[in-house]
Design a protein around this nucleic acid. Structure first.
Lengths: 229, 229
DNA sequence: CGGTAAATAAATCAAGCGATTGAATTAAGT
DNA sequence: ACTTAATTCAATCGCTTGATTTATTTACCG
């Protein structure tokens, strides 16, 4: 079906593929995954041909995979660079920065309006594509490095609590960036916040989240679902 | 079309309405809003009739509204009760508790498996229904009381930061509960955490989030999107 | 210049969709 | 028992979807 071909004809193909990916990302972000047909993606990509998506990518899931992979690598390269900079003696704050800045910097680099963050939320929320993303993300080496750095600085924390707070941090980054991206796109007025400001606030929040004192849960009382008024 | 009728025939109607709401909530949670047709909802509700949804609720948006309204009031009553208990001299921690506990307690009361939390995430993520929910939630008196209590305890915070951290807290509650609900539903093994444990961890996290030190953003440097390596 | 394969276009298929319709069923009031 | 209204059922409309197949265009390479 495919594969960028033997020769310079790949230029045309690469251009259409890029157009399709950009169109898909935008439509997914604006309308949600399930609401967007491959037809509308093809049309929005300027291809009068409604089968363009099928030709270049195959099934719908393959297209989603390709859309997500587009930014995944770039972000992870930024992560690796940040991780290399903090090196040895870094504290928790620096490792949190390694988690947040790569995302915001990448988004800043995309200009306004962008759709990546909102598209990510849509893909991450759709029950059929959820796993696809998380698996792909966890395979990134840069992320693994940062997670290791964070775990070292959080070794005092109960493993379960640490894991769940990590998930909260992920949620915070993902959805905060998506909301910020939406604000930027809708902004009729001038933007009051830069991506760097958003990163500052995210770092503060996640730092507070990780360093918050831990309440020891009581051993389960007889009925956990009811309590007398 | 509707309106629970003049007489005891309302029993039958009320029963089917409830069945439809339950089925819709479950399907929305499992498959996402846009992936679920009114037909499949009717069928899943045991109505061989594919037009049952249209008859009892009207359009698709009306059904979503009804599904969301089902739990909204119950949760807000819990919120009001919690707010009344903390009363005057309460600290930040107690007000955070007023934000978290009503949600987890309501979910605990639903038993396992439940779909409310995951359904909420789906409705909240779908671009067509996003606003519908947030507007409805902000009109609740209990929530308003709790927000007022929180703002009093956070008066030292910059209003913008306070507002955005509030949004983060909302994200944290919503998505953490949804993930927890999914874990509970999937759990082949025994549940290792109760809803009360989840509430403890959420309170810790949000308390840390609200009390985290605030980084003062630098006045914008020439180019915020690039920085030399 | 002509051969060749990639890329695009156009046409087709069964399936499912929302919405609406009118007929059959149910049960209450009298 | 019979009227009457609420509810359920069954059938229908025009439209869009994913997937596939067949033609047509494009441009590189010898």
């Amino acid at each position: 079906m495919v594969s960028a071909a033997r020769s310079g004809a790949g230029d045309r193909s690469a251009a259409t593929r890029a157009a399709i990916l950009a169109a898909a990302e935008r439509l997914y972000a604006e309308q949600g995954l399930a609401a967007v047909s491959n037809r509308s993606v093809s049309e929005a990509a300027g291809q009068g041909n409604i089968a363009a998506v099928h030709y270049h990518f195959g099934t719908r899931l393959d297209l989603v995979r390709a859309v997500m992979a587009r930014h995944g690598e770039a972000v992870d390269l930024l992560r690796a660079r940040h991780a290399a900079e903090v090196a040895e003696g870094a504290g928790l704050r620096e490792w949190v920065r390694c988690l947040v800045r790569p995302v915001t910097e990448h988004l800043a680099g995309l200009g306004t309006p962008s759709w990546q963050a909102r598209c990510t939320v849509q893909v991450l929320t759709d029950p059929l594509t959820r796993n696809l993303v998380t698996e792909e993300a966890l395979a990134r080496p840069g992320l693994a490095t940062v997670i290791r750095g964070l775990e070292q600085r959080l070794s005092g924390l109960d493993p379960g609590v640490r894991r769940r707070r990590g998930g909260m941090a992920r949620n915070l980054i993902t959805h905060t960036c998506a909301e910020r991206e939406r604000d930027l796109a809708d902004a009729t007025a001038l933007p009051s916040q830069t991506w760097s400001d958003t990163a500052d606030e995210l770092e503060d929040a996640i730092y507070g989240l990780f360093t918050a004192p831990v309440t020891q849960p009581l051993p389960h009382p007889p009925s956990p679902t009811e309590e007398a008024p």
